[in-house]
Design a protein around this nucleic acid. Structure first.
Lengths: 223, 223
DNA sequence: GTCTATACGGAGATAGAC
DNA sequence: GTCTATCTCCGTATAGAC
């Protein structure tokens, strides 16, 4: 639970402890995972994958944390990798879904970028455990599963790039390199999965507002 | 070598492929690792840890890639974790060393921040393989080893925070939250370890300049 | 310092009873 | 659907010859 932090100011993050604090017992994110034992296994795997990585986690660990025997996992999932894939796909789709659609009223490029960055950032903080698995365990997915989540990742990337392109096109943003700036803004949010812990100084919403402000500065929008 | 990218524009990163391209055969970063077989093992481990993670890599993999028998590893390293620690420590210390010292002439806060971000970013792109292991395999370090690298991480974090504090103190920067802004700037560079590939559109130096510009905008410095 | 051979435990996954 | 028991292979690490 507690982050391993060196003696230092309370502001020192020291950027990720060996033990990783997990959340999400009854996260609505996993509501759709049925039946309940399957969900329990998934949430157990989620926490362990986030803390120790996919390869650092055994099926026995997962089953034990879910309060079941090792064999029970294979009733609900074909393989350990299949369990990872379910987590990764749900997380990716949820992260995509949280971005306000283009048609969401905000015709103003700055307003739209602000809303998107705030929402995407807050999601990554709130769901830092799921985000961590989604972002850092891609290499453990088998090829077909990787392709499925890569499609979602590409969609996210394009949405942010388009948002910046629009702002540039109408003269509201001023950037030297649109794709690179889009990636940089994504990096801000995604990197939360690496360092964010529930005990952090800011709530997910505060971080969303904060990073939205930084993103607007990056595209040199006064708003 | 080639990133697994979905059909799409050439700009699409799709953010990290299952196969991770490694670099560093004769990287000066590892010059100090002696004797030569120890270095070969270390570089082999580096590439595999970056691609598959520490737990996804076997000592047999490492030895084979170094052209040696599995037992040879234990002549040069106490354990597999010890090999990881050597990599992580060297990488952390090199990343710290690349940041221009406070006394480096640039009395101007904006100039100093620009130089630091450019150097730190370029380092993370150029040494993306080592950076990846350093950033994402911390949880595999045993406690004493973790503490050793955490001390370096803390030093880096403080340097960036101090730089921003100075600029704010003399009225050159305008930020709403100094520690959070420092972390955000670090995130830009660190996240390169996740997505950067040698085939990327920009050289490490170009990315350094680009991100330095973004960082200055984040602290609202015109320069 | 490097090898071959191997000890020993742990890993993913399955069989078959209840 | 869950369990206990187990198969089989693989992983880290060591022994001992050269």
């Amino acid at each position: 639970m507690s982050a391993k932090v060196l003696p230092g100011g309370v502001d020192d993050i020291v950027t990720v402890a060996p033990e990783y604090s997990t959340d999400s017992g009854a996260d609505p994110l996993w509501e759709g995972v049925e039946p309940e034992p399957a969900r329990r296994l998934l949430v157990a795997g989620l926490g362990l994958f986030a803390a120790q990585g996919f390869h650092g986690t055994t099926t026995r660990d997962i089953a034990a944390r879910a309060g079941m025997s090792p064999a029970a996992l294979y009733v609900h999932y074909r393989t350990k990798e299949d369990l990872l894939f379910r987590i990764s796909r749900i997380a990716h789709e949820a992260a995509l879904a949280v971005i306000p659609p283009e048609s969401s009223g905000a015709g103003d490029p700055a307003g739209r970028l602000r809303a998107a960055v705030a929402a995407f950032t807050a999601w990554h903080a709130r769901h830092h455990t799921a985000a961590r698995v989604a972002q850092y365990e891609l290499a453990a997915l088998e090829p077909a599963h990787f392709r499925a989540v890569a499609a979602v990742r590409l969609a996210i990337e394009r949405i942010f790039r388009k948002m910046i392109e629009r702002g540039v096109a109408v003269g509201k943003f001023e950037v030297s390199d649109t794709p690179a700036t889009a990636l940089a803004i994504l990096s801000l949010a995604i990197d939360l999965a690496r360092w964010y812990q529930p005990g952090s100084r800011h709530s997910p919403e505060e971080l969303g507002d904060l990073y939205a402000g930084l993103a607007l500065r990056m595209v040199r929008s006064g708003q």
